[in-house]
């Protein structure tokens, strides 16, 4: 089994390093051919507008859609969550429209408002440690989207999802690849193992 990290821009090397710690083979993915050779895909943190543009120019949008619709497990972190989503609250950008959510980019503010914190996640006994960097949150989620963690929007008092799952799609607002915790990647590896085994 091999897990790819979309390597157009961003911290894909940190994701591959996390996979190595789990003993899983990783590969950089920049072309449709490289995408076809992996069993699951990680869309890393980075600048979502840059990743979207490069994916568009180099013909990766449709191949990724086809793979994910055919069941390939995918994980998006921060910019990766934005790229997977169906829209943003602040205008058009290249997105995959696979995850049925509208995201708010830079939802917590500018870099001086970026933070790390402990957070409860559904299905985990202990709090997780999460680092949010100019992070998005989910403004609106479709009915099929399972919310695993949320934060409270201080201005409206409403809960805003920051970890979600929709079938084979997993997305986080924060960066599991920057901390020593591996539980997010373990979820992806488990899904990829199921997917790569012929049933």
């Amino acid at each position: 089994m091999k897990i790819g990290a979309l390597a157009l821009q961003g911290d894909f090397r940190e994701h591959l390093a996390t996979l190595r710690r789990l003993g899983v083979e990783g590969a950089e993915v920049r072309t449709p051919e490289e995408l076809a050779a992996v069993d699951a895909l990680i869309i890393p943190g980075g600048e979502s507008t840059t990743i979207g543009k490069l994916a568009h120019i180099y013909g990766l949008i449709e191949p990724i859609r086809e793979c994910v619709r055919a069941g390939m497990p995918v994980l998006g972190t921060c910019a990766g969550m934005i790229f997977l989503a169906s829209g943003t609250t602040d205008g058009d950008q290249d997105q995959l429209h696979l995850l049925d959510v509208v995201v708010e980019r830079n939802a917590f503010g500018r870099q001086v408002d970026s933070f790390e914190a402990d957070m409860q996640v559904a299905g985990r006994a202990e709090p997780v440690h999460a680092v949010f960097i100019r992070a998005p949150w989910i403004h609106k989620a479709g009915a099929d989207v399972e919310i695993l963690a949320a934060v409270v929007d201080p201005s409206s008092g409403e809960e805003r999802p920051v970890v979600v799952r929709q079938g084979n799609i997993l997305a986080t607002s924060f960066h599991p690849e920057l901390t020593s915790e591996t539980w997010v990647h373990e979820l992806l590896v488990a899904a990829a193992t199921d997917h790569s085994q012929p049933s």
Partner: peptide, 12 residues
């Protein structure tokens, strides 16, 4: 948090 933003700019 500070170094992390630079990580996100990599390859850019």
């Amino acid at each position: 948090v500070k170094r992390g933003l630079a990580e996100m700019l990599k390859g850019g």
